[in-house]
């Protein structure tokens, strides 16, 4: 039986290795043919900001990997509408976002998931 797994990103990606290791989990879930959703909430919206330069921290830019999620059968990245608005951001400033979802719907997605992951 395939399960529904939801991966919540609530913080920026670079500056430590946690996000990279979290992304590995996401890809692994997809490799197991599970139904996978990736949702940005809170400060997680900063994760997908365009024009990040993690090279200046001598860190690998993991943003391009998000662009390849569809190759792994993942239905893209969803961003919470309120989180964007509260931070004065618009969708065009973000990289590779497939869906915008109101907070209430994010809640519903989490309620019906078999497993929820964060980092």
């Amino acid at each position: 039986m395939s399960k529904h797994l939801v991966f919540i990103i609530d913080k920026p990606l670079h500056g430590n290795v946690k996000a990279q290791e979290f992304l590995d989990s996401i890809l692994m879930a997809a490799a197991f043919d599970q139904r996978v959703d990736v949702v940005l909430v809170g400060d997680g919206v900063f994760a997908m900001l365009d024009n990040q330069q993690p090279e200046k921290l001598d860190m690998k830019n993991i943003l391009p990997v998000f662009g390849t999620l569809s190759l792994y059968g993942i239905n893209g990245v969803t961003v919470e509408e309120e989180a964007l608005r509260e931070r004065g951001l618009v969708i065009s400033q973000l990289h590779e976002i497939s869906n915008v979802m109101p907070r209430e719907k994010v809640k519903q997605t989490m309620l019906t998931a078999h497993h929820i992951f964060s980092f």
Partner: peptide, 9 residues
């Protein structure tokens, strides 16, 4: 990491 995901499932 596959063993983690297998464990979860």
């Amino acid at each position: 990491l596959g063993l983690w995901m297998e464990g979860v499932i």
